[in-house]
Every structure is written in structure tokens, then in C-alpha cells.
Design a protein around this nucleic acid. Structure first.
Lengths: 201, 201
DNA sequence: CTGTCTTTTGATACTTACTCTCATTTCATG
DNA sequence: CATGAAATGAGAGTAAGTATCAAAAGACAG
């Protein structure tokens, strides 16, 4: 067979990738995002700057990996068919959040803090929300037996995504403190409001 | 009095600003965004590169001005109090769109085309949606007699903003063609769906 | 119109993100 | 061990964005 699931190469690459990410994170927190150069990160991670850019196409991308959307999508798919769509998303999110280890929570907090502080990163994070929307629309389309670009599905997906954007930081609503469990409670509550029919209409 | 509303200085500045914007736009369309340098724009607009950055903090900002959000906000405020919130937004948007001159439509089309093509710009455009959300939440809060950070208001504003994000290009839904009147019709229809209570629940 | 003050501009130099190319090293496999 | 493929490092080059300072142009009093 050609190279086992984790050949030496793959392991090394994963290790390098992780090292770069960690050192970058640390340096960003110590000195700020803007005043940390790629060269510094590369040196700290003991790779050449060239290698840095091979792993991450841009400096921003070091913190821009968001692995949860596909997980949530899968969790939505796993909901029983009779659960209505928004409620399915809500339950999926609750399950995924509940399954996170404290370490992941902590690292997520740190990421969110950076997003809140650096507008450049916040912009990219928002952009990812667009991809999340497409993903959600696709999953909800499946559930409802409609194409993902059906206007009703887009509306639904847009509303859900918009609520996430409205309730969760980057920097909105919560004055300054970054990402706390209460934020997720609020998100779940907001989805519930959405599900029951929008308020105040 | 100190310098009339449009002193010579102010007029010159406005002119320079417009010149830079127009030449930038033209060059972007002719050669693409990435392969147009700030120096080229500056030369075409007959200013120094330094001056370019005085008018626009970054290359992106040349096309990133969006003047409509406050206009729409004002139009929402102008709706009679008995109109329910989402419907108020819908009517406001319809009025504002209807009032746009063909020239503005055309230039808006060109902007949106660039957004669709250049991910960097799309990211920033998405980021502005966050600001739009805050604005909408504020206006809706006023209408409903609730603070802008009330969870119900945030949910409402998020849903509206999300629907805009879901239905309008940058690049989503519509395969390739950029910003056409039908897109706005769809947006109005989607807001109507949202207003009547979300479908398929 | 003249001189003076203030704002705007241009020239220059510098940092840093990012790209490209090529030689070298490191792993995979027969 | 030999051979091919993939990953790395080194170096040069482009362009965005910043800081500084001197020159040019508008504002205004006399």
C-alpha cells in the first residue's frame, strides 16, 4: 500500500503545522497581531519563512481554521426527520458544544479574542459565515427535500446564519469579554425565538 | 465664517477623491484587481501614491464605500409605527431601490461584480454586513421600544441581515451574473417569507 | 497685492507580506 | 542501496502600507 494513513511524512507535516499555529498564537497574544511578523513565527517554529507560507497561504490563515461547521452539519443530518429545521440546527449546535473539551473551549476563547481585536481577522471570520450559510442551506435543503438554492431554503439558512452573527461575538453585543458559555446559551435561546416565529411582528 | 460649506479646498478634495475612485474602478475592470497597483491608480488620477493612501487607508477601500445603509435606516424610521418591523425594512428597501438612478444602479453593478470576483473584497463587504446588522438592530429597537441589544431585537436584526446575505450576491445563489433587478425582487420576496413566519417549520 | 498661517501634497526611505525559482534535503519504495 | 517524489531552505523580487519632512497651495488679515 502507498503510505499508511499516518506515514512518517504525514505525521511530520501535522506536527509542523501545529507548531506553527501554536507559536503564532502565543506570539500574537504576547506582542499583538500586527507587530508579530511572519519571520518571527517561522523562527519560533523552527522553519523557514517559505515553509510558513506553504502551510498557510497568508498570515491570517494561521488562526482562521474553523473545523466546527462540518461537524455541526453532520449533527444536523443526524437529527430525526420529524424535527423541524431550525430546531434541528439548534439541537445539533447544543450537542456539538456540549461535546467540546475544556481545552478546545479555551483555545476557542483565545481565537475569538483575537477576532474581536483585529478587524482584518474579523472580516475574514465574517466571510467564513458566508460559507457556513451555504453549508447550512445545503443540509436544510436535504431535510426539506428542496434544492439548496430554493429561495425558501436560502431564507431559512440566511436567518439562522444571521442569528449566529447577531448573537455571537466577534465583538458585537457583549461589550468586551470574549466568548463565554452564556453566549452559547443566548444563541440557543435566539434560535428558539426564531423557531417559534419571529418576535414582535 | 470659516470656509463656506464648499470652499475651494473642499471642492478640490472631493474632486480628487472622485478621480481616484473612478480611475481605480476603470483600471480594476481593465486589468483585474490584483494586477492593478496603487501606483498605477495614483498615476492615472494624477496624484502621488502618498496622496492615494491619504484618501483611502487601503487599496480595498477605494470600492468599499457603501452609502446606502444609513439611507435605508432613515427610510425604516420613516415608516408608520403600525407597520411590523420586518415589513418596515422591506418597504424601506423597496423605496430606496426604487429611487436609485440608472447610473447608480450601473455603478453598483460594477462594484458588486468586483466583490464577486475578489475574495479579499468580499470578505470586507461581509464585514460591513456586521455593521449593517448593528444599525438595523438599533432602528428596530427604536420601533419596538426596546434596547438595541435586547436578545429579541438582535435575533430580529440578525435574521433580516442574514436573509440579505443569503439572497444577494457577492457570488452566492446567482451563478455568475452580477446584481440584477431580479436579485432585489428575490430579496423582497425573501423578507416577505421571513415576515410571514419562516417556511417549512 | 503681500505676508503669514494652515492644510494638502509629493518625494524618499523603510518595513513586511507574499511570490517565484532552484538547489538541497528527507522520506517512500523496489 | 538506488531511484523517484515530496518537502524544505535560500535568495531575489514585487507591491502594500507607514513615517518623515520639505515644498506647494488655499485661507485670511492688513
Amino acid at each position: 500500500m502507498t503510505a499508511s494513513p499516518t506515514s512518517l511524512r504525514e505525521r511530520k507535516k501535522a506536527k509542523t503545522r501545529a507548531a506553527i499555529r501554536e507559536h503564532a498564537m502565543r506570539l500574537f497574544e504576547e506582542q499583538g497581531y500586527a507587530s508579530t511578523t511572519v519571520d518571527q513565527i517561522a523562527e519560533a517554529a523552527e522553519v523557514s519563512p517559505s515553509t510558513f507560507f506553504r502551510y498557510f497561504p497568508a498570515k491570517e490563515d494561521v488562526i482562521l481554521v474553523d473545523d466546527y461547521d462540518p461537524v455541526i452539519a453532520a449533527a444536523v443530518r443526524a437529527q430525526p426527520a420529524e424535527v423541524p429545521p431550525i430546531e434541528a440546527v439548534r439541537r445539533a449546535m447544543r450537542e456539538v458544544f456540549a461535546g467540546l473539551t475544556p481545552e478546545i473551549w479555551e483555545s476557542e476563547r483565545r481565537r475569538q479574542k483575537l477576532f474581536a481585536e483585529v478587524p482584518e481577522l474579523r472580516a475574514r471570520a465574517m466571510h467564513q459565515l458566508g460559507d457556513a450559510l451555504d453549508l447550512i442551506a445545503e443540509v436544510l435543503g436535504e431535510r426539506c427535500g428542496l434544492p439548496a438554492d430554493d429561495l425558501r431554503i436560502r431564507t431559512l439558512g440566511g436567518a439562522v446564519t444571521g442569528v449566529v452573527m447577531a448573537v455571537l461575538p466577534p465583538g458585537r453585543m457583549t461589550g468586551e469579554s470574549a466568548l463565554d458559555a452564556a453566549d452559547f446559551d443566548r444563541l440557543l435561546e435566539a434560535l428558539d425565538l426564531l423557531q417559534r416565529g419571529l418576535p414582535l411582528t
